[in-house]
Write a protein that binds this DNA or RNA. Structure first.
Length: 929
RNA sequence: AGGCGCGUAGCUCAGCGGUUAGAGCACUUGCUUGACAUGCAAGGGGUCGGUGGUUCGAUUCCACUCGCGCCUACCA
């Protein structure tokens, strides 16, 4: 074995073997355990958030597989409609081509090409992460089977009246030319202006003032609204104003919606271009005028397809972009003397989450899912506990959204996606069915009738919502569906609770009658070391593979600065990257990365990724590697006690007891999804107990001349057995190194099996608690620590053997000093131990306390008297302060009367012990003079 | 506006109604100790954001407050 661990040397080889031998596929007849991967964008790459979640999913998967479950981690990708279409369109544009000129069919073919070309990236990344997904079941949302499920669901919902087509205001992206759902809109406050315009009353008796942030939409105003109780305007309600620029007459109406305190208290109402105005328009039966085209340029104006009522839009405005039109409209009003004032005003501006374009509420025909009937059962499923959120607080977020849920706009004016299964005849009547043939058959439409399929595709999330059952073969009643659905747990981030989690619950319940998963474990979001969200535009992204393999600075800079949406950010990103990683990133290996993710997975919702952490866990890998090296060096080719031999040596008994407790903790924490605590339990056991104490304790046993061969064989057995179990316990978190080491150790341990991943996960009961051994070893540790403390603080060379005297040793102490002598000698580097008889005087010594006993190190030639005096004085002061505290506590009647007796007793014992300590320290100090 | 989260050592984070609040990293000191310098040993460092309350006892529970952040909705 190498002296240090080199992950690159083993990772790929082991993964290939796992995959080739089919070990990821569900096997056996155990209880089913299933996790559905949140499908990443097929043409994307995995970022740190994916790597984090994959680590947790794989840990759960491997853990349950080792516990004998029939375990399926279902992989796959989604087609990411808008994102993918945008990428391919950009490629096209770069070649001087346009989507519109090559046509739909050719374009979709190009997208498929791109998918084939780039789709392998994610699979490669997942393999490097060690993901034990069943690749034979890999699925893609645009696969035939999954597409059939989409059609089936669409038709069924339509036939039940839960999908409808309607002309409504939608969030329109004038750049991508598609409708978006509410969730795809990002509204950030931006600095704008509030324009105050005078709208003359039709009878010439004056004017009223409206305030608006969007002057250009006044071309489509169909009313002015005031609050019904607003005394200033009450008399105007029912009268008419002449809309400037267009000259149309519009009524003054009263509506509760108006806030009299804002602006002038009069609101222009544009039902065609504002969601609130749309509602007001409906309440008051106002006409609806559309003044924008699909590019958000001023159109000639139409009234839901009808001719514009009296008064038109000036020709000079038609065709102007909305922002240019805004300036012209303001100028026109100013020229007409109707501009009262302009105020600066901050307002939320809706932008598309992909295009970043300012969206327009726009009147179009779209398909909607009527959501309330689906939401109600989905709410109940969480309320009654059929689905449990972890941490449970996220249920609140879920409920809040579900209770206010709006109908879901599912049609997108894109070419890449599931085409809507609806056909129109020449008269424009719509027919929905599983295929054109089915539609013709169902409606008796002969071949002479021309049918045209709806041009639109479905929201990508529509197909993602079916993922838990469509991947298992639904609508067919496949065996897998029967075994693995409902799935066990969904692991995902809180950012897609609405997009995905809620919709899966609704669709799952609707189409299978069962919840799609029993638990939802919501992870935090990985951020950079400053707590900033990682994003391409911030230039702070890390590729998980770069942490695994390492990356040089130039490559890293190139990665972070290429393909930027805003190229002007390049210099600052480059500078920051060079500052943060002057030497690039070293190789850490997959296991170190995975252990880091697990250790960071606490309940918080922001997780800062700190390179120092991963470095620490790389060292941990190396520690484990070297511990194994030590074990093998001491065991290989040597005689071992037969398996099942119960250990008798104290260290062997102790480490098994400690392992049992550590393993119990891991089981407990994993059941709670506390990967951080599970990781910590394993880390601390491995490093602080197995390596720091146990391996050191085996040295006198194995290397000392005074140990019987049989005893050595027994210790070798314990050494190997505990390591073997530890490797199994660590495997779900660190699959590669544990596999490599386990294969070396298993043979020696006499365990058969080709792989650790199919071995049983250690049970705590296999290593029962041995409290006597723990107490005994705690005494040894206390002894050793006492000596080390003296050594450390007195600057005594670590190698120098010390003679030690024991004073006030009880019977137990005397016995232990005898039986554990060889351990004390080795670990504390003792020359000799002598027990002082009662009344026997000791020379000047440095002192350590162990229970009632004093451990004395004679000072002659070793110890600085002043230093020891100072040390004792410090300890004494500390002990006295403590005594004061405890005394005060016990003297308090309230405490003595009210606190539980056990607590009071503990304080009394504490007082006794501290009193003893003080007298011992005081005596020792006095002796030093 | 409503909802939620966070604030503990220099940094990143655990923890918890009851001994002296922990870890990793960083820091100081000493070590080529026969697995490991990606290591070993010792050490320094915190009035647990603030105020008030409940309690025998609060870092922990409650209220208020300050600071930071997120989500949903949104007044033209």
């Amino acid at each position: 074995m190498d002296k240090t661990y080199h992950p690159a040397a083993i990772e790929r080889r082991l993964y290939e073997e796992w995959e080739q031998r089919g070990w990821f596929a569900p096997a056996g007849a155990g209880a089913p355990y299933c996790i559905m991967i949140p499908p990443p964008n097929v043409t994307g790459t995995l970022h740190m958030g994916h790597a984090f979640q994959h680590t947790l999913m794989d840990a759960l998967t491997r853990y349950h597989r080792m516990r004998g479950c029939r375990t399926l981690w279902q992989p796959g990708t989604d087609h990411a409609g808008i994102a993918t279409q945008m990428v391919v369109e950009r490629q096209l544009n770069a070649q001087g081509q346009q989507r519109s000129t090559i046509g739909r069919e050719a374009f979709v073919a190009r997208v498929w090409e791109w998918k084939e070309q780039s789709g392998g990236t994610i699979c490669r990344q997942m393999r490097r992460l060690g993901d034990s997904v069943d690749w034979s079941r890999d699925r893609f949302t645009m696969d035939e089977g999954l597409s059939a499920a989409v059609t089936e669901v669409f038709v069924a919902l339509y036939e039940e009246g839960l999908i409808y087509r309607g002309k409504r205001l939608v969030n329109w992206d004038p750049v991508l030319h598609t409708a978006l759902s509410d969730l795809e809109v990002i509204a950030e406050p931006e600095q704008g202006q509030l324009w105050h315009f005078r709208y003359p009353l039709a009878d010439g008796s004056g004017h009223l003032v409206v305030a608006t942030t969007r002057p250009e939409t006044m071309l489509g105003d169909t009313a002015v609204a005031v609050h019904p109780t607003d005394e200033r305007y009450r008399h105007l309600v029912g009268r008419q104003v002449r809309l400037p620029v267009t000259g149309r007459l519009v009524p003054v109406i009263a509506d509760e919606y108006v806030d009299p305190a804002f602006g002038s208290g009069c609101v222009k109402i544009t039902p065609g271009h504002d969601f609130n105005d749309y509602e007001i328009g409906r309440r008051h039966g106002l006409p609806l005028i559309n003044v924008l085209d699909r590019d958000a340029r001023i159109s000639a104006g139409d009234c839901a397809g009808e001719a514009l009522p009296a008064g038109g839009i000036p020709v000079e405005l038609v065709g102007l972009d909305r922002f240019a039109a805004r300036q012209r409209v303001v100028a026109l009003l100013e020229e007409a003397g109707l501009l009262e004032k302009i105020e600066p005003h901050s307002l939320p501006v809706p932008r598309g989450d992909r295009s970043n374009a300012v969206l327009e509420p726009w009147l179009t025909d779209q398909w909607y899912v009527k959501i309330a009937p689906l939401a109600a059962p989905a709410i109940r499923a969480v309320e009654d506990g059929r689905i449990r959120f972890v941490p449970e607080n996220w249920a609140k977020t879920y409920f809040q959204w579900m209770h206010n849920i709006q109908d879901w706009c599912i049609s997108r004016q894109l070419w890449w996606g599931h085409r809507i299964p609806a056909w129109y005849d020449a008269a424009g009547a719509v027919h929905v069915g599983r295929s054109e043939a089915a539609v013709r058959a169902a409606h008796g439409l002969g071949p002479d009738v021309v049918l045209r399929q709806d041009e639109d595709v479905l929201d990508t999330w529509f197909s993602s919502a079916l993922w838990p059952f469509s991947t298992l073969g639904w609508p067919h009643k496949t065996p897998e569906l029967g075994v693995f659905y409902p799935t066990s747990v969904l692991v995902t981030g809180f950012d897609i609770i609405f997009f995905w989690v809620a919709r899966m619950i609704m669709m799952g319940l609707k189409f299978t009658g069962e919840v799609p998963f029993r638990e939802v474990y919501i992870t935090g979001l990985i951020r950079d070391e400053h707590g900033e969200k990682m994003s391409k535009s911030k230039g702070n992204i890390l590729d998980p593979l770069d942490l695994i393999d390492g990356v040089d600075l130039e490559t890293l800079v190139a990665k972070r600065t290429s393909g930027l949406m805003q190229p002007q950010l390049r210099p600052q990103i480059e500078k920051a990257t060079r500052r943060q990683f002057p030497d690039g990133i070293p190789e850490f290996g997959t296991d170190a990365l995975r252990f880091t993710f697990a250790a960071l997975a606490s309940t918080g919702r922001d997780i800062r990724f700190d390179l120092n952490r991963i470095e620490g866990y790389r060292n941990f890998c190396n520690k484990l590697w070297n511990a194994t090296r030590y074990v093998l060096m001491n065991v290989e080719g040597q005689e071992l006690a037969p398996a099942g031999t119960l250990p008798t040596a104290l260290p062997d008994r102790w480490i098994r007891s400690r392992l049992g407790k550590a393993v119990a903790g891991v089981h407990e924490q994993l059941a709670l999804y506390r990967f951080d605590l599970a990781a910590r339990a394993l880390y601390e056991f491995t490093w602080n107990e197995y390596c720091d104490w146990y391996l050191e304790l085996t040295k006198p046993l194995l290397q000392g001349a005074d140990t019987a061969p049989q005893a050595r064989a027994a210790t070798r057995r314990a050494l190997v057995e505990v390591l073997e179990a530890l490797l199994r316990a660590l495997h779900p978190l660190m699959p590669f190194i544990t596999e490599e080491l386990w294969r070396k150790v298993a043979g020696v341990a006499g365990t058969s099996g080709d792989t650790v991943m199919l071995q049983p996960y250690p049970a705590a009961e296999a290593f029962p608690a041995d409290e006597a051994a723990e107490a005994e070893l705690a005494w040894v540790q206390g002894f050793v620590l006492g000596i080390r403390q003296i050594r450390g603080e007195m600057n005594i060379a670590p190698g120098r053997p010390l003679p030690v005297l024991l004073q006030d040793a009880g019977a137990g102490d005397r016995h232990r000093a005898g039986t554990q002598l060889h351990f004390l000698r080795q670990l504390a580097r003792l020359e000799s131990i002598r027990v002082l008889e009662a009344g026997e005087d000791a020379p000047a010594c440095a002192t350590a306390l162990l229970g009632g006993m004093k451990i004395l190190v004679p000072m002659a030639g070793l110890i600085d008297l002043d230093a020891e005096r100072e040390r004792l004085t410090r300890a004494l002061a500390k002990a006295e302060a403590e005594r004061t505290r405890v005394e005060a506590k016990l003297a308090n009647r309230q405490f003595a009367d009210n606190a539980p007796p056990a607590v009071v007793a503990r304080e009394q014992e504490r007082l006794r012990a501290i009193g003893q300590e003080i007298s011992q320290l005081g005596g020792q100090l006095a002796r030093l003079g």
